[in-house]
Simulated scan of single mutants.
Amino acid sequence: MTDLFDTAVEEVKVLKKRPEKFEMIELYGLYKQATVGDVNIECPGMFDFLAKGKWNAWNAKKGVSKEEAMDTYVKLVDKLKDKYGM
């Protein structure tokens, strides 16, 4: 699975169009869960909107196994490749 995951991580960087913000946040949460595991940092301050959004996306994946997060990430990238092209 890690080979597919690593490939997906690289493929998302070369899409013809940048995914929507909500798609990017979802990718971020899955990526962090797959590479780090459950969130291990303090929640950012309420006025750091980007950091707070990223933290929330990661925290929403709490308890998801690294393998499941990798699999979901790969599937999402496949959908994004169909939607935005490479």
Rank of each mutant, 00 (worst) to 15 (best):
M1R: 00
M1C: 01
M1Y: 00
D3A: 01
D3T: 01
L4D: 01
F5E: 02
A8N: 09
E10A: 04
E11G: 01
V12K: 02
V12F: 02
K13T: 10
K13M: 09
L15C: 03
L15P: 04
L15N: 04
K16E: 05
K17Y: 03
R18I: 15
P19E: 07
F22I: 15
L27P: 13
G29Y: 02
Y31N: 06
V36A: 03
N40E: 09
I41C: 02
C43S: 11
P44G: 09
G45D: 13
M46I: 12
D48S: 09
F49M: 07
A51D: 12
A51K: 11
A51T: 06
K52F: 14
K54V: 11
K54I: 09
A57G: 13
W58C: 13
K61N: 13
K61V: 12
K62Q: 12
K62R: 13
V64N: 05
V64P: 01
K66Q: 15
M70I: 01
M70A: 08
Y73V: 04
V74K: 06
K75P: 06
K75D: 11
K81E: 08
K81V: 14
K83W: 07
K83L: 15
Y84F: 04
Y84I: 05
G85L: 03
M86E: 08
M86H: 06
